[in-house]
Write a protein that binds this DNA or RNA. Sequence first.
DNA 1: ACCTCTATCTTGACAGTGTCAGGATGAAGC
DNA 2: GCTTCATCCTGACACTGTCAAGATAGAGGT
Lengths: 192, 192
Amino acid sequence: MDDHRYHHGDLRAALLAAAEAELSEKGIEAFSLRSVAKRAGVSHAAPAHHFGDARGLLTALAVAGFRRFLATQHQREAVADPTPRAQLVAAGLGYVDFALAYPALFRLIFSSDRPDFTDPALCQAGDAAYAHLADQVTAVGGGALETAAVWATAHGLADLLAAGRLKTLAALPPESRDSALAAALMRSFPAP
Amino acid sequence: MDDHRYHHGDLRAALLAAAEAELSEKGIEAFSLRSVAKRAGVSHAAPAHHFGDARGLLTALAVAGFRRFLATQHQREAVADPTPRAQLVAAGLGYVDFALAYPALFRLIFSSDRPDFTDPALCQAGDAAYAHLADQVTAVGGGALETAAVWATAHGLADLLAAGRLKTLAALPPESRDSALAAALMRSFPAP
DNA sequence: ACCTCTATCTTGACAGTGTCAGGATGAAGC
DNA sequence: GCTTCATCCTGACACTGTCAAGATAGAGGT
């Protein structure tokens, strides 16, 4: 609990936490590496040793974001019917949940050039998220094109809602909003 | 044709053109006001007089982006069947066309905090784009929820394609890609 | 015990950025 | 010709990311 040691102990994790806080407060376009260091209580060049540069930090943050992205979908799936169709819809609702709960992380992952998307760890995290969706589409009898269609619908809903551009949907109470989202998702893949 | 006059003549338009070129080359997150001024051949503080600050320039650029966004949709609609359903699908294809032709502008408009979206001109331009879509959904018998569903599908396809994340769709030849997009769009609103 | 080695973090510097204050320029109106 | 004013420039400031060089402390060997 001593914050004033020369060696921090777990500065890497502390910097990631500070970076996420800065990201959600200031947004990706006002993100500052020095602000992150200041928030973590270290010098402005301390992050360099753990992440190389600002891109490295944001890449690591994007990896963590993808993991939480999948975890948010799993939360929805856990409380949904075990049928493939219900699981797929639940994943879509989790997709939207993540975008609304962590809009800055969502934008970092899907609408930013700052993370290095050729980084192996980030590639793997992104591929895992895609594979999860593709598996579920396969389970309902769809192929690559159906995966693209479902993904686009979920992504469009999530992105527009997170940006505050779907006021008619956002104004609905949670249950009817979810059912509207579910209906849109259901239409995006073929009937059984 | 004299580029070295003290008074530029139409610096505002020249700065907008330079800003769009910089935006599409460097991306929104590496956008630099000084680079724009340098490209236009004026001093680093010249843009301030016409746009106030960097946000003002990007706001004006977003307004122009919304206009071109609508124009791109109109191009598709002009060569499509005049039936309401075909016109709506054409608008969706134009939506995707714009995202692929001007990805940086698309991101500026839909995934950036830098423009001032409370600016009257920008609000009006954005509302016009929304109204165009809503009108077409109304013409096929849909309401607010259907508008949201169609919008989300078109937006998701456009955003993911522009980000290069739908390789299966992007790999298709143009005609079959368009028909796949059209099929996804058709499913997003009720049958006649 | 001491001594090195190494990872970790700090300090200081540099070029580049947005923004502001003040000054220079030149076109238009009287 | 003189004034006026929009237009554009120069210079300064604080802030940013990145690099080089130094300070610190924990670990491991002798």
